[in-house]
Design a protein around this nucleic acid. Structure first.
Length: 924
RNA sequence: GCGGGGGUACCCUAGCUGGCCAAAGGGGCAGGACUUAAGAUCCUGUGGUGUAGACCUUCGAGGGUUCGAAUCCCUUCCCCCGCACCA
């Protein structure tokens, strides 16, 4: 056994060894299988410690299960479909300073390679290699034979098959859909493509058509139900409006609005300019035949919705105060009641907030609050025709539908915040994409199956189940195609690409067959192939004929799928619960029979750095490659697994990780010590205690790992055992039989967490010729857990604390320490109390009755729950103390006198004694 | 707003099917042992008081249930995450 501790060399050696011996290759065999997958990375940047955690957790579990004798499949692939890299390439091409800084400095891409990043393919290629390198360095036990890119032709065939299947089941339909759109890039833009306005959402306004002679005044509102309380119309008298032909009608619109309507896909033609002024004093008629005057309103923003606003002073604070400021005699018409009371809600809230005039900033708050209350709790007043008594929420929905149906209204999309600016610097607008394909997640039958799947599934942490349930109900139809990006073409409509979240729903099944497909010409992978392999449909010979694939090979592929599927666990970060993971459930229920539905999901927390969220904009990203270099993979793994449970957010702290390195070295030293020790001590109580603790730790570790509790597992597998060993060494001259047993088990116990150092240590234990990654994981030997021994040791620790406490308070230097273990009757009393016996019951015992007064006192002070499981007998406690006499002597540098029967006791300390808490008298 | 998760000592966190909880573990800090010294390692302490192993006050705030609450109930304040067509 060598003492060297060259982590770099050790890690390099074992990475090579594992690879050369093909240790992690997963092939079907007679063993029970265990399949876990984790979301494949989108390699558009360098791997940071957050990713490190995400992929270390499944590796620890994979290693644990493998050592338990399971045939483990842990695969990895690269998600390269989508559009973000296109944007990145574009920015690099334009020498965008931010992008260059991010990739050059933060992600440390060498300049030479950075220069090639003008092509998106080069970006994903570089970073997927980067990821793979780091994953290998981290010691992940991945079967790399199954690796693929989502642009791999065979994979595309698989996606096509999936979409064919869904299409056939009528779960995909055509529709239209509003998106943020950049006119210059000619593309929809996502959050990360934005320079400004990331938080802007798309609001759905209802346009209500008021008629003024033959011109439509399209009033845009978020609250169509207030149409019944409209008292007047607002037009900005200071601006020019445009007379516009919209489809077959003539509308009055602000210039901006006309443009937006055109973008939204309406046929729009401007035919003239009209000043707002010209309409002032006229009146117009609502779809419900109410005629109201048109009033001037300089506050109407032409760039907000249509520039035409209906006024509902009873429910809109802006309208109320505008009318008041102009001293109009128009009376508000209240149409909604809430429990809050008040007749004119807008007036009430204005008075509550002490709003003085239209300029007041608090108006916004007032509007929002009132909107919220009325939307949540409002009911239409009984006097309203057709809608009286209905909830505002419902009326809104129904009324809009009705107006649209009757041609008296339409929908208008507007950003909730402005401006919204694309990374290229261009102002975005909302475009209505037509002919878009949707996955019909709104389908009630589909939702039902998804719910069923979730209900039957193991989900960690358990609370997330509710989350899933919520998302399943909340999910509407999902636009599953894009015009641009990398990806698979929609097979029946090749102008569209399948969107990246939609092509990643059942790919876990692809891993099971991926290596087999590598040498098959993708042309041959017709839908019938996947039907046969994954669904067992069709006749093998027919499939072999149409696809021109050897039937034997087909059978082998199908067997392999059937061996591995379904996955025991799917792991992913919590921000994907609402989309990816839920899609994953949806698609499995649609495509596969129930026996192939996923069996479990684990949801991860996020990564922080020194207490702050890691983000490229903050620049506080900790690269995995950097910390591997600095501390070594084992230390990084140990830290990531021990800092928090997987579903909690973890915090990367430099001071803590430094300490982890120390701990690792300590582990190394202790193991060395433990199995190099040689002596011939026969088994003592203290050895049995150490043995018990080893087995307890194993038990706790296995239980925790079965629940993905890596932190808890490490608590027992590492910290508890370490502390116990230290205590053992302090307490006695360790028994080498025990320490060797400990070393042997401890190394295996820790192997899933810190595989490199464990391999190294394992290889140095005489007689171990296999590698620890394939050794058996310790099973707890419950027989060896001896509760009495544990209780004895706990008693001793208690005494140690008590003596220390007394010494601290009294500041005496002990010369003699007397210990008085409690007499047998007190133990009897404890046992009776533990059984729930009353005072009367206890007093039936003659011994106890003889000490009635003290006994009653003890009964009063002692609560059943405080009594430990095991109450030592006087003999047991006396032996324990006697055995520890030399130890106590050494600890306190004092004589120790143990009184089994009453003897020298000048301060009558004996009476204080309780079972496992002897009386103590200290002489100086 | 809706949905989910949280607020525990100097810091991070465990506990939260009520009583062995002044509250595990880790970090930091302080003291001690070892050492020529430093480092490493080990031990002790780390809410307050106390010349005897105790007592008092604490688990965001307020109230309640109970013989007893960090744990259960109500109210309230604060923090984090998601709310979409994007990975």
């Amino acid at each position: 056994m060598t003492q060297d501790f060259d982590l770099k060399k050790i890690e390099e050696h074992w990475v090579n060894k594992w690879r050369d011996d093909e240790v992690f290759k997963a092939k079907p065999d007679k063993r029970k299988k265990f399949y876990l997958t984790v979301a494949y990375p989108y390699p558009s940047g360098s791997m940071h410690v957050g990713h490190g955690r995400t992929y270390t957790v499944p590796d620890v579990i994979a290693r644990f299960k493998r050592m338990q004798g399971y045939n483990v499949l842990f695969p990895m692939a690269w998600h390269v479909t989508g559009s973000p890299v296109l944007g990145i390439a574009e920015r690099i091409k334009k020498k965008d300073a931010k992008a260059l800084k991010l990739y050059g400095e933060l992600y440390k891409v060498p300049q030479k390679i950075l220069d090639t990043f003008t092509k998106p393919e080069n970006i994903v290629k570089y970073f997927s290699e980067e990821y793979k390198k780091n994953m290998t360095l981290m010691g992940y036990s991945i079967d790399w034979d199954r690796e693929f890119l989502t642009t791999t032709p065979q994979y595309s065939r698989f996606i096509e098959w999936q979409y064919h299947t869904l299409h056939k089941k009528d779960l995909i339909r055509k529709g239209e859909h509003p998106v943020r759109y950049c006119p210059r890039c000619d593309n929809p833009v996502g959050d990360h493509d934005l320079l400004e306005g990331e938080n802007a959402t798309i609001n759905e306004f209802t346009i209500i058509k008021f008629m003024c002679d033959d011109i439509v005044l399209p009033a845009a509102t978020l609250r169509p139900e207030t149409i019944f309380g409209v008292t007047n119309m607002w037009l900005n008298s200071d601006i020019d409006y445009v007379k516009t032909k919209v489809e077959d009608e003539t509308w009055l619109l602000s210039k901006e609005a006309a443009e937006k309507l055109k973008n939204a896909g309406k046929r729009v033609e401007v035919i003239g300019v009209i000043k707002g002024k010209e309409f002032i004093g006229k009146s117009c008629t609502s779809p419900f035949n109410d005629t109201v005057p048109i009033l001037p309103a300089p506050f109407v923003d032409p760039d907000y919705a249509t520039g035409v606003v209906m006024s509902v002073p009873a429910h809109a604070p802006y309208d109320y105060i505008a009318l008041r400021d102009m001293e109009s005699d128009i009376k508000p018409i209240s149409i909604i009641k809430t429990s809050e009371g008040g007749n004119i809600p807008a007036k009430d809230i204005i008075e509550d907030l002490k709003i003085i005039n239209q300029k007041d900033k608090k108006l916004e708050e007032a509007t929002e609050t009132l909107y919220r209350i009325e939307h949540a709790k409002g009911v239409m007043k009984e006097t309203i025709k057709d809608y009286g008594g209905m909830l505002v929420r419902e009326v809104k929905e129904e009324l809009t539908q009705k107006l649209i149906k009757e041609g008296k209204g339409t929908i208008f999309y507007e950003f909730s915040q402005k401006p919204v600016v694309c990374r290229c610097g261009t102002k975005c607008f909302i475009k209505l994409l037509k002919d878009q394909w949707f996955l019909e997640y709104s389908n009630p039958d589909w939702k039902k199956k998804a719910h069923q799947s979730i209900n039957e599934m193991n989900i960690i942490p358990e609370e997330t189940k509710q989350n899933f349930s919520y998302f399943i109900d909340w999910l509407k139809d999902w636009a599953c195609t894009r015009r641009v990006g990398l990806g698979t073409k929609l097979p029946w409509d090749e102008d569209w690409l399948i969107e990246p979240l939609s092509d990643s729903t059942i790919y876990m099944s692809y891993y099971t067959i991926s290596p087999q497909l590598k040498d098959i010409n993708p042309e041959k992978l017709k839908p019938g192939f996947f039907d046969y392999i994954l669904l067992g449909k069709g006749n093998i010979q027919d499939v072999a004929d149409t696809c021109k694939i050897d039937p034997e090979k087909l059978q082998k592929i199908q067997d392999e799928f059937r061996y591995w599927y379904p996955s025991e666990w799917r792991l992913s970060a919590k921000d994907l619960v609402g989309n990816h993971l839920t899609f994953h459930v949806f698609h499995h229920t649609a495509i596969f029979p129930e026996k192939y539905w996923p069996k479990g999901i684990v949801v991860f927390g996020m990564g922080l750095s020194e207490g702050e969220k890691m983000s490229s904009s903050k620049g506080n990203i900790i690269l995995l490659s950097d910390v591997i270099e600095r501390y070594g993979s084992d230390a990084v793994r140990l830290f990531l697994m021990g800092n928090a449970e997987p579903w909690q957010d973890f915090d990367w702290r430099e001071t803590l990780i430094k300490n982890t390195s120390k701990k690792l070295k300590q582990f190394h030293n202790q193991i060395n010590y433990a199995f190099n020790l040689e002596n011939d001590i026969s088994l003592r109580d203290i050895d049995r205690w150490m043995m018990s603790r080893i087995e307890e730790s194993i038990k706790d570790t296995v239980e925790a790992l079965d629940r993905f509790q890596t932190r808890k597992a490490l608590q027992s597998a590492f910290f508890n055992l370490l502390n116990d060993l230290l205590w053992y060494k302090r307490r006695c001259k360790p028994n080498s039989k025990i320490t060797k047993d400990l070393a042997d088990k401890w190394v295996r116990l820790m192997a899933p967490f810190t595989p490199f150092i464990c391999e190294q240590l394992w290889s140095q234990i005489p007689g171990k010729n296999s590698i620890v990654s394939l050794a058996s994981y310790p099973l707890p030997d419950l027989e060896k857990i001896n509760p009495v021994t544990i209780q004895k040791e706990q008693t001793l620790k208690g005494i140690l604390r008590d003596i220390q406490n007394i010494l601290d308070v009294t500041c005496v230097k002990p010369n003699k320490i007397h210990l008085y273990p409690a007499p047998e009757w007190k133990r009897k009393l404890f046992n009776l109390l533990k059984e729930g016996k009353t005072i009367n019951d206890a007093m039936k015992d003659t011994q106890i009755r003889a000490n009635g007064k003290i006994a009653a006192n003890i009964i009063k002070k002692t609560i059943k729950e405080e009594i430990p499981e095991i109450v030592l007998t006087l003999d047991e406690e006396y032996t324990a103390l006697s055995n520890a006499k030399e130890f106590l002597k050494k600890e306190f540098k004092s004589d120790i006198i143990i009184h089994k029967t009453p003897g020298y006791d000048p301060e009558n300390k004996e009476k204080n004694a309780k079972p496992m808490k002897p009386g103590i008298y200290i002489e100086d």
